[in-house]
Amino acid sequence: MSAPPAVNDPGPPAAAWSGLVLAEVRMVYRDPSGLVVPLAVPLLLLVMFGLSGAGTQVPGTGGLTVLDLYGAPIALMVVLSSIGVINMPSFLATYRRTGVLKRLSVTPVHPSMVLLAQVVVSLAQTMLGVALALVIGRLAFGLAVPRDLPTAIGVLILATAALFALGLLVAAVSPTPGSSVAVGMVVFFGIGAAGGLFGPTDVLPDAVARVGEILPFGAGIQGLQAAWLDEPVPVRSVTGLLVTTLLTSVLSARLFRWT
């Protein structure tokens, strides 16, 4: 038997991180049903836009189509939102409910490492969903590349941060995995409806449309549309994404229960 470890050991080895991330990856690919909404629904949306005359150019945009200005931003925000506020919180709520987080709390691994591993894997899923939507959109329906690509990437990063922070808040306030999915769905459809998921926001009551523009779904769509058009991103969109990230991060940190 080798000697016992020193009592002033600084914590878990680096291998613990890769082990936790690998565990999360395995959990996803052994039960891929959770990927249906974030990967398949955006593709379905793109196909619907693509097959319904969305190749028609939008006047005054220099040749951009309905697919470029509406179909792609909506599809991308569905990827981000469904992973951020539905999938990720349901995993975390399940871990808490079944005692996985408690079990890990008595090892050198802090449960926050599990949370970070889950965020890493969710980010990978998000990137896969975004890439899939863009490639299929491009190859099948001639989706245009955003004229201001760095801005499009920046908007996607900000929107991901806001939606993941919102998802952590969903996980924090949901006592059970079932309630986490329910709360996540309400949030998803709430911010989606107000932000343009079901059609142009100008048909919504003005107050709802204004709020929808600063919530993550609508703010993301407006930011992406600006990137496709090569126009400045509306300040209210950036502000909305930043405030959502900050506010929900603080709230979820205060409210999150590990056990």
Partner: peptide, 26 residues
Amino acid sequence: QLQESQLHSSLRVGELARLFRSFYRN
């Protein structure tokens, strides 16, 4: 060893053992 707690439901026994081993230095 806790009285009641589950583990990652779809991980295999060998994977769980290696995962937990990775948390420790010795």
